[in-house]
Amino acid sequence: MIFVLWAIIFVVGIWIISTYNGLVALRLRVQNAWRQIEVQLKRRYDLIPNLVETVKGYMQYEQDTLQKVIDARSQAMTSKGIKETAEAQTALTQSLGKVFALMENYPELKASKNVLDLQEELTTTENQLAFARQYYNDLVTQYNTKQQVFPSNTLASVFKFQPSEFFSVPEAETALPKVNLSLTR
């Protein structure tokens, strides 16, 4: 009888340790994924002035659009927290998409090697941002699910694990027309 009791305590103990460690590991992975997103955001901020500087000479009549990109960038840089950052980033993505769409109208712009290099850099940054966000959201889903399903939810509430926030895409971005930034070959 005593033996059975000890066996039960042992099994429960093992379960508590492994579940707790699993939750902590997931939390760290979520944080790491968020840092990956921040790296991409930083890179994007660095590239935008370059882009504006390069295309300004060609796009005389689009100063408004370029100004909007610069404004969106400075607003995004000052944003704090996951939700606010996500919103500011959406505005930035939209204004950048407009610049790329307008660039199609300037053949001499597309002939410049500088611009092509810059365009590839920005394309990959946008993609990396999207993929980092996708990975982050997948992890957050896993983490939050584990906190809510039985039986691990009991442990999560005892040790006060908080659900993480999604880096979400508001309705506006999904409604945008798709801009293909890659060069056709």
Binding site: T124, N127, Q128, F131, Y135
Partner: peptide, 19 residues
């Protein structure tokens, strides 16, 4: 070579997507 740079960028993207 631009194609190689593009390849490196694409691999970076996929490394991020797969974590």
């Amino acid at each position: 070579i631009p194609e190689h740079r593009e390849l490196q960028n694409v691999v970076t993207e996929m490394a991020l997507a797969s974590g």
